[in-house]
Nucleic acid binder design. Structure first.
Lengths: 226, 226
DNA sequence: TAAATCGTGTCAGGGTTTTGTCAAAGTACT
DNA sequence: AGTACTTTGACAAAACCCTGACACGATTTA
């Protein structure tokens, strides 16, 4: 269950938020002032905080400051009145992850909460990489090419991921050997080349004229969608 | 250099955005309708897209849809008029990373752009050198001339970079031989000249009358835009 | 001014380097 | 032991680099 902490002094608004968030299936905690907000944030470790900036006891920015300086990385969605544009900017620099200006629509708020959770907690479980017609499920370690499953050996997949990590840049054989193989120091082998060839055979529409995995002579290989 | 694509049909707004973003140090591309926006997005691979929802040819949501289904993960900041709240939500579900409602303050927009880029720093910054119509991606070891890819051999690229490093100044053959070839001591060859000729052939609009790579008689070569 | 000299542009051929490819040997896992 | 994966080394193919020769215009010398 996802826990959301609402730090908001207007009781009406807090009530409305709680209702709607609970309706959406979240578990909700409400704090009426900054001080208790901060306490609850550290005690209960919510998955997301909705934080009003104008608060009694301890204002929103201070709460945020305390949280961040304590190393708390919980995503924070800031609520702010329209005229406080400068505060908004400061808020972002301080590490708020998003903000909404009052008055706001509930739909908007909910959408933002959802987006924020998706972004931060990676709540959208599967980490997919899609490039051209090639799709990689990083966690499942599976690869499909235009819908069809392609079987890659472990080394091949690791190599592919290493290349993709530096997408668009040349990665030297040396770098690949250290990153993928754990080799250190100078080694001279055709190992990288062999695996590159295998990858091309399995992934490229025309292995002779690579579209994704390009050779940078004397430098290494580069993953790039042409 | 960070590249931002602005997809916006109102010329005034587009102009204002371009100005301000460029002032902030971003490289800016503008598309006036959804179709060209989509094209530019895939061709130029911007680091961030600012996307208006109401567009001629292909509306913003469609653009977004196309992008995402093609596996393009570029962060998108959506611009929308106030009344389109539902569209906003749809936009978020579709994978917009943030949005701003019109009318918006510039400070707000810039703060959001910054925040969005910071969040998505998964993209490594590219080191680009742009001279006239020639652009060099140092890390990718690729060169384009007015948008089209030019294939340079390793030595050629190294030579070009060596010349550019001392842009505007004459570099002697000796210096080039040491820097690029690793030769030390006195050697007399036509090697440098040969490679210079090749570079001119590939890069100069008129190789007979070099615009970039100039000859300094008895001294060496100089890279300079005429 | 003409001739000689010098410096650079240009080009093609062959030697060299680098990469692609393959099969066989080695290794790890079941 | 059997299977799938990995590495190695040899060879082939491709790309590249260098050399040396000649051309041509600029500069110096006669």
């Amino acid at each position: 269950m996802t826990l959301i902490l609402v730090v908001e002094d207007s009781e009406d608004l807090a009530f409305g938020l709680r209702n709607n968030l609970e309706f959406e299936g979240y578990e909700v905690l409400v704090a009426g002032d900054g001080k208790t907000g901060l306490e609850l944030a550290t005690q209960k470790q919510p998955d997301l905080i909705i934080l009003d900036l104008t608060l009694p006891e301890l204002d929103g920015l201070e709460v945020l400051e305390h949280l961040r300086s304590a190393g708390n990385k919980v995503p924070v969605l800031v609520l702010t009145a329209r005229h406080e544009e400068i505060d908004k900017v400061r808020g972002l620099k301080l590490g708020a992850d998003d903000y909404v200006t009052k008055p706001f629509g509930l739909m908007e708020l909910l959408a933002r909460v959802e987006a924020l959770l998706r972004r931060t907690t990676g709540l959208e479980a599967r980490h997919l990489i899609q490039i051209g017609e090639v799709q990689i499920d990083v966690d499942a370690r599976t690869v499909t090419k235009s819908g069809e499953r392609v079987d890659l050996a472990p080394r091949e997949l690791d190599l592919l991921l290493a290349l993709i990590e530096h997408q668009g840049k040349v990665v030297s054989r040396q770098e690949l050997l250290t990153d993928v193989w754990g080799h250190s120091g100078q080694v001279v082998t055709r190992t990288v080349d062999t695996h590159i060839a295998e990858l091309r055979r399995k992934l490229e529409p025309d292995p002779a004229k690579p579209r994704y995995i390009q050779t940078a002579r004397k430098a290494g290989y580069r993953f790039e969608l042409t």
